[in-house]
């Protein structure tokens, strides 16, 4: 039963001379929750940023659903995607950023309603109702009228998650969602993501350094090193019996930093 919703086919990404993704092959199944771990600079975030169309690719093909993301078909040939094609594809994806990236000039409520109204053409009343449901889910109904700078980091990130969900994406991308938070605020954000992980249909792709959390919520863990997947498997396999030496060294360094 292979029904990948995301497929990277020999994808190359370079920044200048630096190769970030080196002919990466990578698949995510519909509804699967996948966590990407690995040392910094290994291309983890780049995978998410390519999917969100924030970063172009230099080679290979990325598929989302059964359509190429950065290309489109023209007379049975793949040509670079038009903005129109990209806009169509983006509708399936939502992203949560490390630095939240909320719109500072909008209230929490408007952060959640602006894109549904302006992009999806949803009515104001409907967008508002959906926003309040989402705020309820992330436990912030009482903060709806506030501006982002009036919220704690943890609250802002919960708004960030709700804002992405307001667009009803099929795939949620989490780019180190707790890395910018004070340690005592990490839990509240992870709890929200954990709730989402229970949703059967939602495909989740997560980049994080929270290893225990990754172990709890993921169906599969991918260890990235030097722009490739060095090793992947179930959380059990990766965390209890990693095969590769590089994976063992990384996990040891992350899990027992004092040794």
């Amino acid at each position: 039963m292979s029904d990948p919703i995301i497929k990277f086919d020999k994808v190359v990404k370079r920044f200048g001379d630096h190769v970030v993704l080196d002919e990466l092959d990578f698949e995510v199944q519909r509804g699967e929750k996948v966590t990407i771990i690995g040392p910094s600079g290994s291309g983890k975030s780049t995978v998410l940023r390519i999917l969100m169309t924030l970063e172009k690719i230099n080679g290979g093909v990325v598929y989302v659903g059964d359509q190429p993301l950065w290309h489109q078909w023209r007379r049975e040939e793949l040509v670079p995607a038009s903005e129109q094609h990209l806009r169509q594809m983006r509708n399936q994806l939502g992203m949560v950023f490390q630095q939240f990236n909320l719109f500072p000039h909008m209230t929490v409520l408007r952060n959640l309603t602006e894109a549904p109204i302006q992009v999806l053409g949803v009515s104001k009343a409907e967008a508002r109702q959906r926003a309040m449901e989402l705020l309820e889910m992330v436990g912030l109904t009482d903060q709806a009228a506030k501006y982002p700078h009036q919220l704690s980091g943890g609250q802002q990130q919960r708004v960030g998650i709700a804002r992405a969900l307001a667009m009803r994406p099929k795939i949620m991308l989490f780019d180190e969602p707790t890395s910018a938070l004070d340690p005592e605020l990490v839990g509240e954000v992870l709890n929200v993501i954990r709730t989402l992980a229970d949703e059967h249909d939602l495909t989740m792709l997560l980049v994080t350094h929270e290893m225990h959390f990754a172990r709890q919520v993921s169906d599969r863990i991918c260890f990235f090193d030097k722009g490739r997947i060095k090793e992947q498997g179930t959380p059990e396999e990766i965390f209890t019996a990693p095969k590769e030496e590089r994976t063992q060294a990384f996990l040891k360094a992350v899990l027992d930093p004092d040794d």
Binding site: M52, T53, L54, R87, R90, N91, L93, G94, M95, F97, N101, L102, F103, E114, A115, Q118, V119, R163, A164, M167
Partner: peptide, 8 residues
Amino acid sequence: EAATALNF
């Protein structure tokens, strides 16, 4: 980037 991700 946030605006692009929300497909504006």
